[in-house]
Amino acid sequence: MDSTIALFLAQDGITNGAIYALLGLSLVLVFTVTRVIFIPQGEFVAYGALTLVGLETGVVPGTAYLTLVLGIAAFCVDLVRSPDGRQPRVLITRAVSDLGLPLVLLGLSGVVAPANMGPWITVPLAVALVAPMGAYIYRLAFRPLAQATVLTLLIAAVGVHLVMLGLGLVFFGAEGYRATPFTDVSLSLGVIDLGGQSLWVLGVTAVLIVTLWYAFGHTLAGKALRATSINRLGATLVGIPTARSGLIAFILAATLGAISGVLIAPITTIFYDSGFLIGLKGFVAAIIGGLVSYPISAAAAILVGLVEAFASFEASSFKEVIVFTIIIPVLLWQSLRSGHVDEEEE
């Protein structure tokens, strides 16, 4: 391996690592706030990427209809489940967010898809189409189980994963697709060309991480999220609506997933089931961060990306084996570090 290849692999690894960082971040966020080990995080990646491809190729993507269906379902279920939410004001707000929003998005897709409008329109629309799903899925699948054990929530997450995976195949078929890059520009740095798309990935990731860091540290909503993640009961007692925190966490997770999807769609061929494996690599990063630490997860994500890049060059067929075996020493280390067993929540 010469230095050019090494640099190329490093670029590749860091680009993928940035995506894993976003996913790891979402997983940590969702887990700490709602205790859900969110297996379907990767599905948002595939949905985001393939929705973008659909919009580019002139097809109204199935996800646009799915968002509407989920919105309607969430609206109806809340109508039945929460009697206090039947006041006109609440009803109107919900109608707008659950029915109006997906309808508008569907209408927009109908206009945008055939018109071939370029990434400045299609990319934000693809993200916007997928992001509300996070909220609807939380309300349909997880909020009714808010008091359940981590194990039950995990199994519910598996259920959501199965549904999203099955629907992904229906919407996008078994073929893989690649989106057009946002830009053709590439930056020449001596021996190596930095791809424009890689720059996009790194730039957007950096902006998102800084924004999130600011939001968590300096806004009321962000502080409420942190409070919920640190102590749910305490947060409830001081008047933080923890269900809303959960909702925000899921919307953020879906948004970050969709953004990851549109970012890598031009670099990697995405199949309907690619998201799962990508999401799991986010998990590896999140596990290294102990499922609680954002900075360690982000750093670990870059490491995962690099290991994957170099492994795919040195022993390509064992790439996945190597990536997923990283967590063994991590678990060992965490295991040795943990002293007395804490009382487990039940």
């Binding site: 349909l140 699948a141 199994i155 519910a156 598996v158 259920g159 959501v160 994963h161 199965l162 549904v163 999203m164 995976l165 099955g166 629907l167 195949l169 229906v170």
Partner: peptide, 13 residues
Amino acid sequence: GNYETIIFGVLLI
């Protein structure tokens, strides 16, 4: 398609 997967997922939830 993997329709049964969708049904199983919904059933599980």
